[in-house]
């Protein structure tokens, strides 16, 4: 599916070539058993992603509304022209990119701080800190969205009252009536919920920095900041890159918080919401499929850029989201 990733890693060709001349029966049966065991999971993964995206591509070539199924017609790439020539697509892409960049940058800084705290904390606090950090990780995104929404909401919120000493904030400020204030709260909830994930990936990276190196730097009189910048960061570059890539791809498909807080009002619509609105609300399957495919292409481009330009080695690491 994601050929760019596959191509860069390559299949274990060398190994199979080396063994090709004569496979012992034992090796043959091991191969067979391997595929018997791994096959079902592999097929299920393809069935739930590869098949739908191909179907989406096929549907995107038709003019199809479920409210008028008889008007279905093959129109080649006209849906893509419609989407890409619509300012709404570009506006939503812009909003999505802003959210992605701002949240990932802040999460990286905050996540690093949390990872360092968890790594260096005295033993008696370690368990407590890690437990606390896992709460935002495990909580449902929709619940997090409501928690932040109600805190800022002009009717049920208390934030306006608490922070009325800051210029611009007063009890009459309606955060969800304008673009930037709504986006601020959306991003805050996203950052709160997903920073723990990035900090755990960074914690794993920190564990790989050889302790002797930092000690040697300390003996040589390096300050904390110098040790961090010259020893720690370069030694966990791979972990940082992977964490950033995963969070970027995850932030790019942001949907839940925006749906709950503004439902795209005041220009806060993101691409996932546009796809949802087109296919599920307006039942424009053809157009919605085109948006789905374009979103998928965006993800491929991000991956391609990360792997080619930043040389992120994905295959050695794990991904996941919550």
């Amino acid at each position: 599916m994601s050929t760019s990733i596959k191509a860069s890693k390559g299949t274990p060709a060398t190994r199979s070539q080396r063994r090709r001349p004569h496979l012992s029966d034992r090796a043959k049966s091991e191969r067979r058993l391997g595929w018997y065991l791994a096959g079902p999971a592999f097929i299920v993964m393809l069935a739930v992603t590869l098949y739908p995206i191909l179907q989406a591509f096929w549907d995107s070539l038709f003019s199809l509304r479920l409210t008028a199924p008889d008007d279905k017609a093959f129109i080649w790439f006209a849906n893509y022209v419609t989407v890409l020539s619509d300012p709404v697509w570009w506006r939503d892409l812009g909003v999505t990119v802003i959210i992605t960049i701002v949240t990932v940058v802040i999460e990286l800084i905050l996540g690093f701080a949390l990872a360092l705290v968890m790594d260096k904390a005295i033993k008696s606090l370690r368990g407590l800190l890690r437990t606390a950090i896992l709460v935002p990780y495990g909580i449902i995104t929709v619940v997090s969205a409501y928690a932040w929404f109600y805190a800022f909401d002009i009717n049920s919120g208390y934030v306006n009252h608490w922070f009325s000493w800051i210029p611009g904030i007063n009890p009459d400020l309606n955060w969800f009536a304008e673009f930037w204030p709504s986006l601020f709260v959306i991003m805050a909830s996203e950052i709160w919920k997903t920073t723990p994930f990035i900090s755990l990936l960074l914690l794993a990276g920190l564990a790989q920095v050889p302790g002797e190196l930092t000690e040697a730097a300390q003996v040589d009189g390096a300050t904390w900041w110098e040790r961090f910048r010259k020893v720690i960061v370069p030694n966990m570059k791979a972990a940082i890159m992977v964490a950033v890539l995963f969070r970027t791809l995850d932030a790019f498909r942001i949907f839940d918080n925006v749906f709950i807080m503004t439902n795209g009002a005041h220009g806060t619509e993101v691409l996932s919401l546009l796809a949802y609105r087109t296919s599920i609300s307006r039942l424009e399957i053809g157009l919605g499929s085109a948006i789905s495919v374009l979103l998928f292409v965006c993800v491929l481009i991000i991956c391609f850029v990360a792997i080619k330009l930043f040389k992120v080695d994905l295959a050695g690491t794990q991904g996941g989201k919550s």
Binding site: A56, I285, F296
Partner: peptide, 20 residues
Amino acid sequence: TTALAVSIFPVISIVTPLFN
């Protein structure tokens, strides 16, 4: 690699075809 690719797949892209 497939597992990795599936985990970064934009969920909303699967929704439209499945809905139909």
